[in-house]
C-alpha cells in the first residue's frame, strides 16, 4: 500500500440516455414545474447507461498502466474522472501527486493564441508557475519540433503539430502522474519513437503513467500493467507480461 499513487474505489459513472428528464431550456424546465413533474437532473430515467460500473484498481508509483478494451468500454471515461473533468456518479479515487493529462488532441489550447502563449497558459493549468515554464521553454520547443511555428496561432496548426506541442508541454511540467488518451496515434513514426523513448526514461525516474491505446505494439513496449475494460466493468487486470493481452487479442 505504501507506494500506491492511484487508488480507484468502486467507481461508477451513469449517463441518462433519454434527455426527457433534463431540462434543456427554461421553457421545458418551467413547464415541468407547472405540471408538477420532477425536474431534477438526477431523476433516474428509463434509459440509463453505465459508462463505468464498480471499477476498482490500484496503480503503484513507477508503473505504466495501459487500459485496453473496445470503443465505448469506458476507458476514456475513467481517464476523464481521473483528470477531474467529470465527477464519478459514485465511488471515489484517491490520488497522490500532481497529474498532467493529455485527453484527445490539444489539451485545452486556445485557438487564437500563438504556440508560445499557449505554452504558458497550458503550463499554468498543469500547475507549473510561469518562471518554471520560462526556464523549460527551450526544452519544450526543442522536443515538440515546431519551433518555426511558435508565433503562429495554434488554430493554424495541423493535428500532428498540436499533439507534439501538447505532449512536449505535459512532458516538461514535472508531473508525478501522466495520463495519456490515444495521444501517440496522432504523431508520425518519428515523434512516436521520441515519445516512447521519453516515457521509458521517465519511467526509470519513477514517474507513473496511465494510458489508453489501441496500439498493441506500444502497449507491449511500455506497459507494466494492463487493465481490460468491457462494457464499463473491469474484466481483468494484471502485469503486462501475463496472458491478458493474448486473451484480449483473441476475443
Amino acid at each position: 500500500m505504501s507506494n500506491v499513487v492511484i487508488d480507484i474505489n468502486n467507481v461508477c459513472k451513469r449517463y441518462a440516455l433519454s434527455h426527457q428528464h433534463r431540462p434543456d431550456s427554461l421553457k421545458t424546465w418551467l413547464k415541468s414545474l407547472v405540471k408538477g413533474a420532477a425536474s431534477d437532473v438526477d431523476t433516474p430515467s428509463e434509459e440509463e447507461f453505465w459508462a463505468l460500473k464498480n471499477v476498482s484498481l490500484q496503480v503503484r508509483q513507477g508503473e505504466c498502466l495501459a487500459l485496453i478494451g473496445k470503443n465505448g468500454s469506458g476507458k476514456s471515461t475513467l481517464l476523464k474522472i481521473l483528470s477531474r473533468i467529470i465527477p464519478p456518479t459514485s465511488g471515489h479515487i484517491r490520488v497522490r501527486g500532481r497529474i498532467a493529462s493529455l485527453l484527445e488532441v490539444g489539451t485545452g489550447f486556445h485557438p487564437e493564441l500563438t504556440g508560445r502563449e499557449n505554452v504558458f497558459l497550458n503550463g499554468a493549468m498543469l500547475g507549473c508557475p510561469e518562471q518554471e515554464m520560462r526556464r523549460r521553454f527551450d526544452a519544450i520547443v526543442d522536443f515538440s519540433g515546431v519551433e518555426r511555428f511558435m508565433d503562429t496561432p495554434v488554430k493554424h496548426y495541423s493535428s500532428g503539430m498540436y499533439v507534439r506541442l501538447a505532449y512536449a508541454i505535459a512532458a516538461h511540467v514535472n508531473a508525478d502522474i501522466m495520463i495519456l488518451d490515444e495521444v501517440l496515434s496522432v504523431g508520425d513514426a518519428e515523434f512516436q519513437r521520441k515519445c516512447l523513448g521519453h516515457m521509458q526514461k521517465q519511467r526509470s525516474e519513477h514517474r507513473t503513467f496511465v494510458l489508453v491505446s489501441h496500439n498493441m505494439e506500444s502497449i507491449k513496449r511500455l506497459a507494466t500493467h494492463v487493465a481490460w475494460l468491457r462494457e464499463g466493468q473491469l474484466c481483468e487486470a494484471g502485469p503486462a507480461d501475463s496472458d491478458i493481452l493474448q486473451r484480449y487479442a483473441a476475443c
Partner: peptide
C-alpha cells in the same frame, strides 16, 4: 505527499 480525493460530492 498528500492524498487527493476525487468523488462526486
Amino acid at each position: 505527499m498528500r492524498w487527493r480525493l476525487i468523488d462526486g460530492h
